[in-house]
Amino acid sequence: MLRLHNSIWLGAGMLLFALFLIEFLIPTWVITPSNVRKLVLSPDFWPYIVAGLLGLGGAILLLQYYFITRPLQIPEEHDDVPGGNMRIALVAAIMAVYYILLPYLGMILASVLAYVAFIVVIGLPRKVAAAIIAIVLPLLLYGFFDHLAGVPIPQPDFFRLP
């Protein structure tokens, strides 16, 4: 499979992102009042400068790759791990579900489930200790934040701790 150098990914990605910023995101999502007298004081001046910086950085990175990195055959380390990408996808799913479930299950139950799910993804090491920590850690943190720090930790109606 063709494998692109990191500099190409980053350079091309930044260039495209900068174009997207300049052509769409800034004109649409940065509101500029009509009474702005000086360009440098406009709310969109700074975002345009930053977008230009990102685009320029991306373009130079691409040039640097074609004129320096490639001719000099600078090697790039590829750190592939069997099943690594699958585990990354599963962690992404855990985080998404964790975030979605927080308002419905409350922070304690959602955290217990997230901890257990993470342990399953990495191959279920030390099952008993993991099960104990999965329950005790969210409860301890609840105790600290809710009772000591005065932060109301979200809890569902069907499961409320004092």
Binding site: L102, M107, Y115, I119, P125, R126, A130, I133, A134, V151
Partner: peptide
């Protein structure tokens, strides 16, 4: 302290901390 128990714990800690 096993990393396998530590890192999921850090995830939970991050969520509580940022929410707070």
């Amino acid at each position: 302290v096993p990393s396998s128990l530590l890192f999921p714990g850090i995830l939970v800690l991050c969520v509580y901390g940022v929410y707070a």
